[in-house]
Amino acid sequence: MLFFDLCIQGVIQGAIYALIALGLTLVYGLLRILHVAHAALFTLGGYIGVIVTNGSGSFLLALFTSMLIVAVVGMSSYTIIYKPLLNRAPLISLIASIGIFIASEELFRIFFGAYGLSYINPPLQGQIEILSGVSLSHARILVVVLAIGLLSGVGWLAINTRVGIAARATVIDPQMAASSGINVEIIRYGSFFIGSAFAGAAGVMVSLLNNLVEPTMGAVPSYKALAIIVLGGLGNVRGALVASLALGIIESFGTIYVGHLLDRDSIAFAFLIMVLMVRPQGLLARG
């Protein structure tokens, strides 16, 4: 029973990682930029989720509002930060991104206070027994359902629609895509929109699981999501999703069985190092 329980906890964590990592890997695929400030969007999502839920009483409204606002903020981060720096060395965008991320933590603190915010009446706290002895709160189940729903929606778009095909073409060869009449800018904005919205959703879900959003809640995702997209093969969406799930499960078991030696992050990075020693190109990238 413990084994199933730990697997389930791993899948839940993996689902959150996947929602965060998708945007990061999309941006890397299109622009070759490590979008560290993505984690600030995750935090923003959490704050909007708590504030709107507490104000309106509707968690669903909060989830949609959060995804929408975060998506718009994500798109403007492209316009304001990355677009002017596109012709510079990638390092410059990276430094700009880290700067924005650090500043965001203090901005959250200044605007919303150092103590963080919590739900006054946390929604979705009911329990469902999924196996005998293993029961999960509705919030935990929603995390997984939401991740599967959103990610397969994007997968369907990418495979079955012209926009999706155009997006994939742009990732493979932006110049060729542009000369075939694809509007590369729209693809970029679209990727920021979707990736940021998902990070917002992840932020709302994490705020619900912990009943706490705090200025520094993006700190761990800021580097763990980088590890995930490296693990998956940089820019490879499917790889990032597999890596998210793998990492969630490894961390879940690792916390219990080697937790007294290595903390959660160390376990994740030890796994990353081991995989990269065998497959330097990442889990799913073509070698």
Binding site: L209, A219, T255, G259, D263
Partner: peptide, 17 residues
Amino acid sequence: EYDYSIKDREFGPIISK
């Protein structure tokens, strides 16, 4: 005894154990 780091907010695996 289970250890966790100050950055952890998610205790699912430890609680299962």
